[in-house]
Structures are given as C-alpha cells and as structure tokens.
Design a protein around this nucleic acid. Sequence first.
RNA 1: UGGGCUGUCGUCAAGCGGUAAGACACAGCACUUUGACUGCUGCAUUCGUAGGUUCGAAUCCUGCCAGCCCAG
Length: 362
Amino acid sequence: MGEKVVIGMSGGVDSSVAAAVLKRQGYDVIGVTMRLWDGENIDGCFTEGSCCSLSAVEDARRVAYALGIEYHVMDFRREFESSVIDYFVNEYKIGRTPNPCIACNKHLKFGALLKKAEILGAKLVATGHYASVSVDEESGRYLLKCANADEKDQTYALYSLTQEQLSHTLFPLGEFKSKAEVRTVADSLNLPTANKPDSQEICFVPDNDYVGFLKRNAGIVPTIGDFVDINGNVLGQHKGIVNYTIGQRKGLGIAFGKPMFVIKIDPKLNRITLGEQGTEFSNCLFAEDLNFIPFDNFTGEMRVMAKVRYSAAPAMATMEMVNETLKITFDTPQRAITPGQAVVIYDAENPAIVLGGGTILT
RNA sequence: UGGGCUGUCGUCAAGCGGUAAGACACAGCACUUUGACUGCUGCAUUCGUAGGUUCGAAUCCUGCCAGCCCAG
C-alpha cells in the first residue's frame, strides 16, 4: 500500500474523480465527508446544505464503495460554526461582504481536516479543488499554482494556505485540462456522481437567501436606511445594509432612468451610496490578514497580477507594504473592490504562480 | 371662484389620425463552489373617465374627474 491520504469528499463529481486519481496513483486513500452544518428547520421543513446533506453523504459513500476505499463521515460542525458561520455573520454585521469558501478552506479543509487526517495516520490531505502544488527547486518552498483548466481555477479561494498546509496537500485535479475531462473520467469509471450538476451558492444557504439565513440564525434585523448619491442627497430607502454589496445593481428597487450601483456602504450611518455606471471602479486597495507563498514577507515594491474577485481576469498592478497593510495599485481601475472579499496576487511573469493575498480593507 | 397647463406600464418617457418606442425598476433563465457583475427572455389588447367625429383615435371635439401654476 502507498502513502495514506485523506480526501475530502463532498459528494460531487470533482472530489469523486480526485479520489479515483489518487487511488490509481497508488495512494492508500481514505475518503472523508465533512459534516459541517445540519441545515435549518424552517416551518417544519428541514433544509439541507449542499455540502453535507444526507444525499451528499450517500453519493460520497457510493463512490468510495465503487473505488474500494475506506470511508468515514466526520463531525466538524463545531469548527465550522466558529470559523465559518460566525465569521460570515460578523462580517455582514459590520457592513462587509464575507467569502465563506475561503474561510472554510483555511480553517476546515486544510485546518481541522488536516488534523483529523493525522489521527487516521495520514500526513496528506487532498481535495477536488482545481489548483496544483509544486516545490520550487531553488528556494525549496511549496508553490501554489493555477489549474490547467484555467476556466475552473480555484486558487482564488486557496491563497491563504501556508507552507505547512501546502506541504501536506494534494490537488489531483490540477492536471486536468477541463471540467469536461473530469466528467469523462467519472463516466468511464461509472462513478455514480458523473452527471451530478455543479454545486453553487453558499453551501449552508441552499435556497440562496443569505439574508433570511442571517435573520434566522443570527438574529440580524435589517434596518431600513437611506440610499444617497455621492453628494449625500437622499435617493430612496434601502432594506437594510446586509442586503447589499459593493457593485450591486439588482434589487435596489430604485428607478433612476440609468442603472445605479452600490459604491459605498456605511454601517455607522446605515447609509448606502449609489453611483452611475463607471463610478464603481477604483484602482487602489488596502488589504490585511496577508499570506505570502513563495516568501514569508516582502518589502519595497513589486509588479504583480492581482484579482479582486473569484471570476476576474488578473490585472497588472504594483504592490507595496504601507505600515502593516498591503497596498495594491492597479494600472487600470478595477470594478467593485469590496471590503471583506479577497485580493489574490499572482506572479507578473508567470501568472500561474500564486504569490499570496489578503482580505480587502478598503 | 376666474385664467392657463397637464393626465400613456411601478418610475421617467416617446407618440401629434393608421392600429402603444425606449430607459430604469421588476420577474424567470443562463453564467458562477462566496456576495456580486454580466447575458438572454418576459413585462400596458391599452393610453384619467364618459360620450362624439372618423373606415380607423392615445392622437380631433365635448362633458366630467384629478393634479399643477398664475390671479383673488
């Protein structure tokens, strides 16, 4: 038997194929489905998150059986609540827009799961993320790199991984050229998840009503306030700050003859500033909670590529440290730079190499 | 109470006798392992109301109703 590796199995096609790849590569594969959240009991109807629903567990179990690998369901509800749910709620409370997937990767999949893996005698953890890890021969450091299937690349949500975490991480899907290829493999292996649709939305908010989630689980009561223009003139009423994020257009309910976008959220004054198309662009941001991958920290200036959201093309920028925060100045203005979201930076010469990232402050 | 103006989708707004543009908002779908953005589709059988003229009216005429402005 080869080296032991724990693979996080969500019950989706990606992690199913990832497990199959590991098995084929000769690893001693242990499938684990993380029990993260129990869902909610709404009006007597029990809703389940996509990550850890009974059907997800069932799918993962069937795949594990089909592959002939050991399989467990493990309870991570406590860690998930403290590291993801609480964070999610608190960010909204202070007028920011959280990214729960990033928190979950950092604290659960490459945090708590990694620890549990050790208990099972496995030094390695794998997931079905589209990304890859390699070792830089010169420095000996672990590098996080983009997946071959660039349209599915998920390094944006993985920038926070440390050297320690990366040294114990495998991403079996990194070499795949496309999602279609992953499905083809799933098909050829007759995996029961081969035709399962891609997941989306926040896994613990299956109906996509995250505001309802905040009301039910965190007692947040959205407070009506003013929409104002750049000069402070009142344009209308908003339904409570948690309903909005920077760059948002839909759901404003305000007819201005032109599309209007959220350009600023002020939780203190419970006020939201709206602007016309174009005013939601900015070319500079500051970030904190930094993590760098090819180096521990840096000084001076560096030309980089950076992106401020999951589905954005990296853009040329210059980064520098200002006090304890990272300042990034883009060559061209970026759309809807949003506090709470991540900025992820890539090597300017080789944009497939992740240099690191941080949480956008402003 | 005189004089003038206006009344078309939730909002703004074309139309000026030939059978209801458009924008914004809204809804659905697509895209998306976060929130968003974006794209596509849908959205007034009816033009304040009641009559009249006409082959034909939101468009012309008359009464009424409502709102606005000026005068008192």
